[in-house]
Measured scan of single mutants.
Amino acid sequence: MLDDRARMEAAKKEKVEQILAEFQLQEEDLKKVMRRMQKEMDRGLRLETHEEASVKMLPTYVRSTPEGSEVGDFLSLDLGGTNFRVMLVKVGEGEEGQWSVKTKHQMYSIPEDAMTGTAEMLFDYISECISDFLDKHQMKHKKLPLGFTFSFPVRHEDIDKGILLNWTKGFKASGAEGNNVVGLLRDAIKRRGDFEMDVVAMVNDTVATMISCYYEDHQCEVGMIVGTGCNACYMEEMQNVELVEGDEGRMCVNTEWGAFGDSGELDEFLLEYDRLVDESSANPGQQLYEKLIGGKYMGELVRLVLLRLVDENLLFHGEASEQLRTRGAFETRFVSQVESDTGDRKQIYNILSTLGLRPSTTDCDIVRRACESVSTRAAHMCSAGLAGVINRMRESRSEDVMRITVGVDGSVYKLHPSFKERFHASVRRLTPSCEITFIESEEGSGRGAALVSAVACKKACMLGQ
């Protein structure tokens, strides 16, 4: 009897593995994704193909990295998701002549009506938060230079001027797309009239992360975010950046690689679950690469896999709870928690219980395998993109072996128990001629924006502006 049951459990697990095998990517698959990513990057950089390229390769006008001589107080704003952060950054000489960066910050959550109302409502709310922060720190009387981390696709015309191309991540505030974001912020500050600010720089969160990590390690020339969304930036040779005049030196390019796949480059790798996630998203047909990796989508992918296993009578005796059938019910943090389970399955059992399920031991094991399959594919897909960037940098610099540091931020990278190990191992397999160091950014977005502002202020002083 026991043997029969054991055989049935083994057969069930084997069927589960057959279904989950769809998520496995072979090294040849990853090399294919990497080569296609490089081709799209090239198209994004070139003037004649930029418009139709899915990977936009947006110039950021960040050319210099901090040298350690900029000092002063800077205000930093960070808008990239449902939370908005205001930070005071003091850049100065530390002990023994070292450079020191001290920060104080406060988080504000953005109400739904500000995210989806008008641009005026959104930026009025942001300036209200700045006003509140300055009151708390008794700094209303000071006109501070301000660095703005704005983590949406922007076409820069200068370091302090950028046109919002399109909202992502659930934002829909009308009247912002096609307009200068810094102008919208300046107008809102003017409307309030109770404080003055000098907006000197606007950067993407990947750029802010790279600059913040450069402060720790001067070989950091790539910034990457794996959180709600997924994106990367890197220092490109100016001669390859056709959208900006000049051939000397390097400029940081914001790849906006989340949109890779929007022209069909990933079609052969998309599964039924991916198509369902895409169809029910706020932007169907867009940001397809990001939807395979980002935390906004990972939990939902797992939920759809679990429903398939229920329908195949391989999980929960073929019956799903009402909660499990509800879109968004299986949160991405559950994926991390399930994979963090120590082996007694308590954590998995508790999560499934909150979803109205009474799982068996085998159910718990199957749910864990589903989570591992989805998150491992995410790590491997992400590795193909980064390997594409790094191999490109090595080739354009004609280096036999390139040493490089990548600064990384984002909740999936930082909080998932195995993502970074799987990701690092896969990147290294795909970049055999590179020695890569990964560092995690601390308060990256805010500190990085302030350091970019410090560079901009120093330049302005040198130019006598």
Rank of each mutant, 00 (worst) to 15 (best):
L2E: 09
D4S: 12
R5Q: 11
R7H: 08
R7T: 07
K13M: 15
E14D: 12
K15S: 14
E17T: 06
E17Q: 07
I19E: 11
A21W: 08
A21G: 06
E22W: 11
L25K: 11
D29T: 10
L30W: 09
L30K: 09
V33S: 07
M37F: 05
K39M: 12
K39R: 13
D42S: 13
D42G: 12
R43L: 07
L45H: 02
E48T: 13
E52S: 10
M57R: 02
P59M: 08
R63E: 14
R63I: 05
S64A: 14
P66G: 15
E67C: 05
S69D: 12
S69N: 15
E70G: 09
E70Y: 07
V71T: 11
L77I: 03
G81C: 05
G81Q: 00
T82M: 03
F84N: 00
F84L: 04
F84Q: 01
R85K: 04
V86N: 02
V86H: 02
V86S: 01
L88E: 04
V89T: 10
G92K: 09
E93Y: 08
E93K: 01
E95D: 11
Q98D: 06
W99V: 14
S100M: 07
K102Y: 07
Q106V: 08
Y108V: 00
Y108S: 02
I110C: 12
P111V: 04
P111Y: 05
A114W: 09
T116P: 01
E120S: 11
M121G: 10
Y125I: 05
I130S: 02
L134N: 01
D135W: 09
M139D: 06
K140V: 04
K140E: 14
L146K: 03
G147F: 01
F148Q: 01
F148T: 03
F148I: 02
T149S: 05
F150M: 03
S151P: 02
F152H: 02
F152S: 01
V154W: 00
V154L: 06
R155W: 06
E157A: 04
D158G: 06
L164Y: 02
N166P: 00
T168K: 01
K169Y: 01
G170P: 01
K172H: 00
A173T: 01
S174P: 00
G183P: 03
G183Q: 15
R186P: 02
K190Y: 14
R191V: 00
D194I: 14
M202Q: 00
T206R: 02
T206Q: 01
V207Q: 00
A208T: 13
T209I: 06
I211P: 07
H218C: 15
C220R: 00
V222R: 01
I225C: 00
I225H: 01
G229Y: 00
G229T: 00
C230V: 11
C230S: 14
N231T: 02
C233L: 03
Y234D: 02
E236F: 00
E237P: 09
M238E: 15
V241P: 04
V241K: 05
E242R: 10
E242N: 06
E245M: 05
D247P: 10
E248M: 15
C252F: 00
N254C: 04
E256V: 02
W257M: 14
G258Y: 00
A259Q: 08
A259N: 07
F260H: 05
F260P: 02
F260K: 09
S263R: 06
E265K: 08
E265A: 10
E265L: 07
D267T: 07
E268V: 13
F269D: 10
L270W: 07
L271Q: 03
E272R: 13
Y273E: 07
Y273P: 15
L276F: 11
D278N: 13
S280A: 09
S280Y: 09
S281V: 06
S281R: 04
G285R: 15
G285M: 13
Q286P: 07
L288M: 15
Y289A: 02
L292T: 12
G294V: 02
Y297M: 07
L306V: 06
L307I: 10
L309A: 15
V310D: 06
D311W: 07
E312N: 13
N313K: 11
L314W: 10
F316V: 13
F316E: 02
H317Y: 08
H317K: 13
G318F: 05
G318Q: 15
A320C: 11
R325P: 08
T326R: 11
R327H: 15
A329W: 14
R333Y: 15
V335H: 05
S336K: 04
S336P: 04
Q337M: 04
Q337I: 08
V338Y: 06
E339S: 06
G343D: 13
D344T: 04
R345P: 13
K346D: 07
Y349F: 10
Y349W: 14
I351M: 07
L352F: 07
L352N: 07
S353M: 11
S353L: 09
T354L: 12
L355E: 05
G356W: 07
R358V: 09
P359D: 04
S360E: 06
S360F: 11
C364P: 11
R368N: 09
R369C: 11
A370F: 04
V374I: 13
A378Y: 04
A378E: 01
A378T: 07
A379W: 04
H380Y: 12
M381A: 12
A384V: 01
A387W: 01
V389F: 01
V389K: 01
V389Q: 02
V389Y: 03
N391E: 11
N391K: 08
R392G: 09
S396G: 11
S396Y: 10
S398A: 11
M402P: 12
R403H: 07
D409P: 04
D409T: 09
Y413F: 04
K414D: 08
S418T: 07
F423Y: 07
H424R: 10
H424W: 09
T431W: 02
C434E: 04
C434D: 07
T437V: 11
F438V: 07
F438S: 08
E443W: 12
G444L: 05
S445R: 02
G446M: 14
G446C: 07
R447Y: 08
R447H: 01
R447I: 15
A449E: 01
A450C: 00
A454D: 01
V455H: 15
V455W: 15
K458H: 13
K458N: 10
K459F: 06
A460P: 15
A460H: 15
C461L: 14
Q465W: 13
